[in-house]
Nucleic acid binder design. Structure first.
Lengths: 197, 197
DNA sequence: TTTTCTTTGACTGACCGTCGTTCAATTATT
DNA sequence: AATAATTGAACGACGGTCAGTCAAAGAAAA
């Protein structure tokens, strides 16, 4: 046999090595040559691990989202009120700590809109159901603690789409001045309607 | 003197000539050479009217959105109930007649996410405020007719973001089975809460 | 008025530089 | 020796540029 490298690990290493570059310039303004140089490898090697530039962003999204989910779960577990848990969850779209993932997510969304690639599509679908399930457990907990009316279930997933939509607007227009306020308001309105008193 | 062409008109002509191509293949999978050939002009001429490929999509969005707004306004004016007016408004995201604009809008959103170009940003911002104002007049009318409680004003713009978000999800995942149902449901829930009885 | 000259804007495609992608050669390891 | 991994030169496709061509139309001359 010969050298055996952990392909998955090296893929991650390359992606992480170019993270800063991608965050600062955007994947569409970077060349493969730059990527290779930054990662300290040859241009051809990039293609051993990635089909194309877009896949680099995909890999980064997967890595950062993994990290993010773990951190967020720990954060949310510290909270007691369901309202605060939900706000923390959607904090992704505005809190400073998540800025990097948010930037990558933005670029990833642009890629997804252009090329409905098989892998990316199924990944995004998995994410959707993962977050849906997660949110359900948070809400179910609130219902069982008699904090919330059961009808909230029908409405909570709407916040998902709302947050995503207003985030896109905040990037593509100059009309959204305070993203946090917009999202928190929506959550507050929902909870004001759905809290047991 | 020499030939004077209506630059604005010719720009529109070129954009419309390549509409089908852009709709079918997506702007990122088309070459300038193809565009020129399809429009029956030289490659250099394309650059007389457009800075780059992205601007072609921008031009198409402007043209089709103009048309769309006029048609939609006529449609909405035929309706009487505020709920139906709002549903018709957001029908943009799912009705078959708007498929072309929707496809272009999708590509335009991807472009906007990548390059926060000055002109596009201000165009999107204008659109945002235009639609906001339009929606306000529809809602105000409903309030004056005692169909709706005034509090609906705080909630209606949320539907905008929601619809945009769920539309993006319907493109980037396979989780959204029935977009129309999702949007109509949200509108119905809002109106059920906000109708005077 | 007719003819010729001059100017101008529109248009073009050959050309250039860049960049994504490939692959034959090389290196490293067992 | 055999195999895995790496590499960067080479290739080809594409976006964008620009020097030159052309047709229209006013200006000048006859």
């Amino acid at each position: 046999m010969a050298i055996i490298v952990d392909k998955e690990q090296k893929k991650k290493d390359i992606a992480l090595a170019t993270k800063a570059l991608i965050l600062n310039k955007g994947i569409s303004n970077i060349t493969i040559a730059q990527i290779a140089k930054t990662a300290g490898i040859g241009k051809g090697t990039v293609y051993e691990y990635f089909k194309n530039k877009d896949e680099l962003v995909f890999e980064l999204v997967e890595i950062l989202m993994q990290e993010h989910n773990e951190q967020k779960e720990a954060q949310i577990n510290k909270l007691t009120s369901t309202r605060e848990k939900v706000k923390s969850f959607f904090g992704f779209f505005y809190i400073d700590e998540d800025r990097e993932l948010r930037e990558i997510y933005k670029q990833f969304t642009a890629i997804s809109l252009n090329n409905p690639d098989e892998h990316m599509l199924s990944f995004q679908t998995q994410c959707y159901f993962f977050y849906e399930k997660w949110m359900e457990t948070i809400i179910q907990d609130g219902i069982e603690k008699k904090e919330l009316k059961p009808e909230i279930k029908d409405l909570i997933m709407g916040i998902f789409a709302f947050a995503q939509g207003v985030f896109i607007m905040s990037v593509t227009t100059t009309a959204i001045q305070n993203l946090q306020q917009k999202i928190d308001n929506q959550i507050d309105m929902l909870f004001d309607l759905m809290e047991e008193r």
